[in-house]
Amino acid sequence: MKLAISILLLTMALGLHSQASFRGGYKSPQDLLLSLKEKFNGISGSSCDSLSDNDRAAMGDQNMQTGEPFADEPGAAFVTVWSTCLNNYSYNLFYSTDTSPELLAKRTQIVREIMAPLLAGVVDEQVLKAMTTVMVPASEAEREAYIAHLMRWVLGTDEEIQAYGRMTDPKQYRQDLMRHVFPPGVSAYAMEGTRQALLILLKRDEFLMYQ
């Protein structure tokens, strides 16, 4: 299963060479990091906040000598850099043990946004605790609505997603994603499935590319 997902994710990054290149549509390295920073309110701190020379090459920065990107399209190096940043942010959001008030406040605000449908009525002080104990809704309809909420949080409305021309049937995709992160008939805590869904969505072209 994990292997299948990894292949899927890798292929989505690599195989898209047929449609887009660093020159043709992927965000600049700076915008890629800014998009994450904006989404997660900078909770990763200094990690993924600046570009090393190796990272910028993998993320499609230009070769100054030629004016062309170092690589034609995103490859394994891109996936590595991007996955590392996503893991940093998602870890800090869901698992950080740092008790600094500033970070706690930011995490609370973001978790409340992300898991809003599941945290109705929970006061701010309890959000991070509730996040670890709240269960996925039992009904498929509610689960699908929750996934739709996550998609909207990461990628925007269906209209925005379809404007990229890559996802023809958002509803079908929602259902597929839902069944993947919240297998049918399985009662589970919502947090880990939410994290998995976010990691998948943050690797889509609709997040990585300009329209």
């Binding site: 299948a4 899927l8 292929t11 989505m12 690599l14 195989g15 898209l16 047929s18 449609q19 925007g156 409305t157 209209e159 925005e160 379809q162 404007a163 021309g165 890559r166 996802m167 023809t168 079908q172 995709y173 597929d176 994603l177 069944r179 993947h180 072209d205 329209q211």
Partner: peptide
């Protein structure tokens, strides 16, 4: 899901006329 992913990965071709996108887009 895999099928969706693979299809996307190898590029769906769909022809669209020059439509304008909606307000959210």
């Amino acid at each position: 899901l895999l099928m969706v992913g693979w299809a996307l990965s190898f590029g769906l071709i769909f022809q669209a006329k020059a439509e304008t996108i909606g307000d959210f887009a």
